[in-house]
Simulated assay, not measured.
Amino acid sequence: MLDFPNAKINLGLYITEKRPDGFHNLQSCFYPVRWCDALEILPAEKEQFDITGLPVPGKPETNLCLKAYKLLKQDYQLPPVHLHLHKVIPMGAGLGGGSADAAFTLRMLNKLFELNLSNDALENYARQLGSDCAFFVRNQPVIATERGDVFTPVNLNLSGYSCVIVYPGIHITTAEAYGSIKPEMPNCDMHMLLKQEIKVWRDVLKNDFEEALFPKYPELPQVKEKLYEAGAAYASMTGSGSAVYGLFAGEAPDNLVFPDHYAIWKGLL
């Protein structure tokens, strides 16, 4: 079985408070984009896990795909499988690629072995793997709260827009990002902000991590400004960085030029 775990972008991101368990509560709109990894799962005589494409740090046994398989195996008699992940979505970019890989592993195993798990059940498994993993079970736009794993549907359709995502090759760890931020409740309502015209978002829809990380990594505000200069209706860093995206009405411009070591993705939403 072959599938293509996709990335997401954050439309606004507010870190509202630190939790007693050490995590943080947040408010954000998660929106899926079509920048994808490739994941294949096949029944096998013995358990096997391969990674190709972008180099993934850490030992294979710590990968979220394998953790997802072992998590389901605790409750179901799963046979050995051969998992092959081809990594395309950059890591440390705020795009949720690893979370998507984990959630798609759960989804694919559910289908492959006819476990008949509901989306609610799959989300509960996904929450055990990472804060935003559960989003990729349904893979639809939502307002995310608490740890980023409690969802409210949002009526938001950006199908008339294209997205340009720019990853400048800067790996920002979650610990680094959250270590430099001061939680604060926003004086706005995400649902109301997203109902406004996209051209207004520039002034009202913020990512709290930008204030903390832009002075440390000047490439990031430079990318954001370049996207606006190219005609983006809205531009922002996604997640805790370091990828920055721009939303363009219709087709994205072809004349955007960035350094060769930057990873660029363009596509329709």
Rank of each mutant, 00 (worst) to 15 (best):
S180I: 15
S180E: 15
I181A: 08
I181V: 15
I181H: 10
I181N: 10
K182V: 00
K182A: 00
K182F: 00
P183G: 03
E184W: 00
E184H: 08
M185T: 07
M185P: 03
M185Q: 11
M185I: 06
M185R: 08
P186A: 01
P186I: 05
P186Q: 02
P186M: 02
P186G: 03
N187Q: 09
N187I: 01
N187T: 04
C188G: 00
C188P: 00
D189F: 03
D189C: 11
M190Q: 01
M190F: 04
M190R: 01
H191E: 15
M192E: 14
M192T: 14
M192C: 09
M192Y: 13
M192V: 11
L193W: 05
L193E: 06
L193S: 06
L193K: 11
K195P: 07
K195L: 13
Q196L: 09
Q196G: 08
Q196T: 15
Q196C: 11
E197I: 00
E197V: 01
E197L: 08
E197S: 13
E197K: 12
E197D: 14
I198R: 04
I198S: 04
I198C: 09
I198W: 01
K199H: 13
K199W: 05
V200Y: 06
V200F: 07
V200S: 12
V200D: 13
W201T: 14
R202S: 14
R202P: 03
R202F: 03
D203H: 01
D203V: 00
V204Q: 01
V204S: 03
V204N: 02
V204Y: 00
L205S: 09
L205T: 09
L205N: 03
L205A: 08
K206P: 01
K206C: 00
N207E: 07
N207R: 07
D208G: 04
D208K: 04
D208L: 06
F209T: 13
F209W: 04
F209S: 15
F209A: 14
F209Y: 07
E210M: 12
E210T: 08
A212D: 08
A212S: 15
A212R: 13
A212M: 12
A212L: 14
L213N: 11
L213C: 14
L213T: 14
F214K: 05
P215W: 11
P215V: 11
P215M: 07
K216M: 11
K216S: 08
K216F: 08
K216G: 02
K216A: 12
K216Q: 15
Y217F: 15
Y217I: 08
Y217S: 07
Y217A: 06
Y217C: 05
Y217R: 02
P218I: 09
P218C: 10
P218G: 07
P218F: 13
E219W: 04
E219M: 11
E219N: 06
E219R: 11
E219Y: 04
L220W: 06
L220T: 08
L220V: 09
